[in-house]
């Protein structure tokens, strides 16, 4: 294989986030409408590598992916050793808005998956005017705990391997092996307690069932895409949000909970028509 750089730029942004100095890792590629992408719990921005590398997307969109604090190449804030990481809906919303402001994005499209697919419902509910469109991947208003998340952070269990074990079945059995194991690798690399801390939002704090009916899916330009193999955010959960908000909801064949990472070409074939619709609207 001849050496080849990907058309992605990665930089560290130093700024105040959630009231504390942070060092945040951000990747981007392309030009045009800003598309701010949110990764899943316990993973990082590498999940969007397929999108950042796809010319059909980057010709018209400036794809921007950040690693949340504590995740990927972003550092936890100073003093992290003396606190327990727990993501809340309030911090997650503020984080997205503050990053968007710091990057001076003008009405970006925001797209999030899983916890990101949940928080975009909060954005559609409270901050729709700040976004040109909102895309929820693997969106459900609530997911009840179905296993004890304490297994994800304890010294007598390999944190990375149990995290990968918990999510492995959420990937479609039809996903190519290389993308499946890349997706699991990101989970294996997550810091101790980070996946569990994200799930505090996913399973406890981030229950938006009571507000879904107040979201205007058409006014907020909300789109929903969910993989048929996702048994965490189920097809039924997504279709219910679609029905209650008026947002178009699509169930994607041959995909699971990590569509952009487990099978990028398959996912992008579903995403391109949505991006085109947003572009011409």
């Amino acid at each position: 294989m001849s050496p080849r750089f990907e058309p992605i730029t990665g930089r560290y942004l130093n700024f105040d986030l959630l009231g504390r100095p942070h060092r945040l890792y951000i990747e981007e590629a392309g030009q045009g409408i800003p598309l701010l992408c949110l990764h899943t719990a316990g993973s990082d921005g590498r999940q969007y590598r397929g999108l950042l590398n796809d010319k059909r997307v980057t010709d018209n969109y400036r794809v921007i992916v950040f690693d949340m604090p504590w995740h990927g190449k972003s550092s936890p804030p100073d003093g992290w050793q003396n606190e327990e990481y727990k993501l809340t809906s309030r911090d997650y919303i503020d984080m997205i808005l503050q990053i968007s402001d710091a990057l001076e994005l003008d009405k970006p499209v925001v797209m999030g998956c899983s916890i990101g697919g949940r928080i975009v419902l909060y954005l559609a509910h409270q901050h729709a005017a700040r976004f040109r469109a909102i895309i929820g991947l693997e969106t459900a208003a609530h997911v009840a705990p179905y296993y004890d998340v304490n297994w994800l952070h304890r010294p007598d269990v390999s944190v990375g391997e149990v995290s990968a074990g918990v999510v492995s079945g959420l990937i479609s059995p039809t996903a190519p092996d290389n993308h499946r194991w890349e997706t699991l690798w990101h989970y294996m690399q997550s810091g101790p307690g980070v996946f569990k801390g994200d799930l505090h939002f996913y399973k406890v704090d981030g229950d938006i069932r009571g507000k879904v009916d107040q979201i205007d899916g058409r006014a907020s330009n909300l789109y929903l895409l969910t993989g048929e193999y996702d048994y965490s955010c189920t097809s039924e959960g997504t279709l219910d949000v679609g029905k209650r908000t008026g947002a178009p909801a699509t169930i994607m064949k041959g995909l699971g909970h990590f569509p952009m990472s487990e099978d990028p070409p398959q996912f992008i074939s579903y995403l391109l028509p949505v991006l085109e619709k947003i572009r011409v609207t």
Binding site: Y146, Y147, V166, S168, G169, L170, S172, P173, T174, E228, Y229, Y231, S232, S235
Partner: peptide, 15 residues
């Protein structure tokens, strides 16, 4: 290739 909801023990467990 099991159908959705049948491909993983956690999927069976959740159902």
């Amino acid at each position: 290739i099991p159908p959705p909801g049948h491909n993983d023990i956690f999927a069976l467990f959740k159902r």
